[in-house]
């Protein structure tokens, strides 16, 4: 009787282990997140942005005057390039040091809290470590922010730069073709809608046909490439023992960049 009870208890404990993982998953997360808007709203960032905007407002009349003096399109292009470079230089000069300080602060907080990756707050729906306040305190603190002594530990989250993937010839060609198709479809829909300007029902039908044509074309030309890209990402991520892959724009610190591997896999 005693041995039966023991067996029942042991089995129950084993079953409990299977159905209640909550108790044993504690303290696993090394994923942090940051509210970038909160950092951007800091007075020093606001001042810097105002400074850049003021510089642009000074540059605009000079640009307009220079463009008026331009003799041809080549002149206009050259002038446009020169002024844009001036603006970018100023932007770098004013905002660059602030970004560098914020990035060092993020690195230090991440290191202190043993985070392997820091992502944008927008993509976190549950859990994770919010490091916004620590980063803001550090950025606002006196003196230089000291970089951490160690680099982030290997991450289980990887990222891809989708804009680079989009530049692969076959993907770029597909995107360009789709844009052209969408533009033609829009022009055609517009003409039909103008012809049916007093018939709302007909206009509704034209609009629905227009939307359907876009969806069909998207499914026909772009979806296979999207699926292929996702599959390549999953394969590379598997090889690198990554758990998830996110877009580069959502990564703030750490993470494994697998863009080049995915590009190679897609070639």
């Amino acid at each position: 009787m005693k041995s039966t009870s023991t067996l029942v208890l042991a089995a129950a404990a084993f079953a409990a282990l299977l159905v209640a993982p909550a108790a044993i998953a504690a303290d696993l997360t090394d994923v942090g997140y940051l509210d970038q808007a909160a950092v951007g709203a800091l007075p020093q960032f606001q001042r810097a942005n105002a400074q850049v905007a003021q510089y642009k407002s000074q540059l605009d009349p000079q640009f307009a005057a220079a463009m008026k003096r331009a003799h041809n399109d080549a002149d206009r292009q050259r002038i446009s390039g020169e002024f844009q470079q001036k603006f970018l230089d100023k932007q770098r000069q004013v905002l660059g040091p602030l970004f560098a300080r914020a990035q060092t602060a993020i690195a230090q907080v991440a290191s202190n809290q043993r985070l392997s990756v820091v992502v944008d707050k927008r993509i976190v729906v549950f859990g994770g470590q919010n490091i916004t306040k620590s980063v803001v305190d550090l950025v606002n603190g006196p003196g230089p922010v000291v970089p951490p002594a160690s680099t982030p530990p290997p991450a289980v989250i990887g990222f891809v730069d989708q804009s680079q993937i989009d530049q692969l010839p076959k993907i770029k060609a597909a995107n360009d073709n789709f844009l052209k198709f969408a533009n033609d479809a829009r022009q055609s829909a517009l003409q039909k809608m103008q012809a049916a300007k007093n018939n709302q029902q007909q206009q509704q039908q034209i609009f629905q046909q227009y939307q359907k044509s876009l969806t069909d074309e998207q499914n026909r030309t772009l979806k296979p490439l999207v699926d292929q890209t996702r599959s390549a990402m999953a394969t590379v991520a598997n090889q690198k023992h990554l758990i998830l892959v996110i877009d580069r724009a959502d990564i703030i610190y750490g993470g494994a960049d697998i863009t080049a591997d995915v590009q190679n896999a897609l070639k």
């Binding site: 993982p21 044993i24 992502v119 976190v124 990222f159």
Partner: peptide
């Protein structure tokens, strides 16, 4: 998602995922 994640004992839940081998 938060409620489901807490029940499942997860530490972090993300959206906007490009690929998820794990």
């Amino acid at each position: 998602a938060g409620t489901v994640a807490a029940k499942r004992g997860l530490q972090v839940v993300l959206v906007n995922i490009e690929a998820a081998p794990g």
